[in-house]
Design a protein around this nucleic acid. Sequence first.
DNA 1: GACTAAATTTACAATGTGTTGTATAGTTGA
DNA 2: TCAACTATACAACACATTGTAAATTTAGTC
Lengths: 197, 197
Amino acid sequence: MKETKKTDPRILRTRQLIRDAFVQLLQERDIEKITVNSIAERATINRVTFYLHYRDIPDMLEKMADDMIEEIVQALNRSPVDDNAQDGGYWPKMVQFIEHIAEHAEFYKVILAVKRTPIFMERLLILVTDMMEENLEKEGNNSFISKAGIPTDIAMWYVSSALFGTIIGWLRNDMPYSPHYLAKQFYQLLPGKGDKG
Amino acid sequence: MKETKKTDPRILRTRQLIRDAFVQLLQERDIEKITVNSIAERATINRVTFYLHYRDIPDMLEKMADDMIEEIVQALNRSPVDDNAQDGGYWPKMVQFIEHIAEHAEFYKVILAVKRTPIFMERLLILVTDMMEENLEKEGNNSFISKAGIPTDIAMWYVSSALFGTIIGWLRNDMPYSPHYLAKQFYQLLPGKGDKG
DNA sequence: GACTAAATTTACAATGTGTTGTATAGTTGA
DNA sequence: TCAACTATACAACACATTGTAAATTTAGTC
């Protein structure tokens, strides 16, 4: 996945055309109705060209999901802010994450909110779970979850899906709050954060 | 949807066969790979018989989702327990809901956890949101969310997806906790429930 | 400017889809 | 009881999509 080296611009161009075409089509119809034919047509490439890049549509979705995760990881590693400074009731990595989503809102809205596309949902939930797990470990035995004796697995199912679902709801409603504000509200809703504020 | 009257038993039989076949197939392969052919074969009915009940596979999913919601609503209305008695940190309707899912675990596990089937996810999230909304309204201005000044929409995205995701995680791990216990833990994790216990 | 990789064009076999026409079993009412 | 109607089941066909295989043109790299 190290595409830092010079890739043939024709390949990048074609992949971008396919990706844009896919996002467009997914806004218009359900994913089962998206054919290789329609993608090629919309992307103004030959249908055979599609097969030069992807085995079939499921393969395309998988590779696009790989790219998506890769891009998020890069965005989170860019300008590594102090992740311990939980100023004002939220943490910087969270804001960065939500900001990245906001920057690619059209893409994320259609794959997560308008049409729940399983592969993307799956991959993103794993990433979000890792994020929340990392945060919980940092709190250690001082966390509310620890003190309340709630099984860690239950707590993880809870907080990661809460974050994921909050972002989806926010996207579905065309992001009526700033990433910063959303992160702050989310932080306050977290278990045990009630009295601390 | 009032199927209380006598429906031709052959229809019920055929629908049940189709439903079972679908669940089986979804355990084995991705939904895009499930054809009308394969369903008919597995259900030991003629392929055309399928079309007498459903227009195509998307239509089948939609109708199955309708049935699912209908069945949950019926289960929740059966033996109307006192919904105000929030004894021990959870509410009865929640337990009933989780118990219903446990009773049909094979079905729910495959459509929600093993394969995230959008139509079912969508419909169930709406139902779960209604449940949580009803509960929040009951708390009124005394709720933590009210007092903390968190926008209601954000709070709803948060709590409903938290419940939904918790149940999915629980199903995915083959229900390692009792419905009653899970409901209790979930209740404790809710915003502002930290100090009350 | 020559070499090479990418994209296009055309063609074709295979599969899944959904329709049409028809047969059989079950239900209803005179 | 019988005839008409309805519901269920079956066989065969037309159609679109898929996946792949050539040969050719286009564009980027060195």
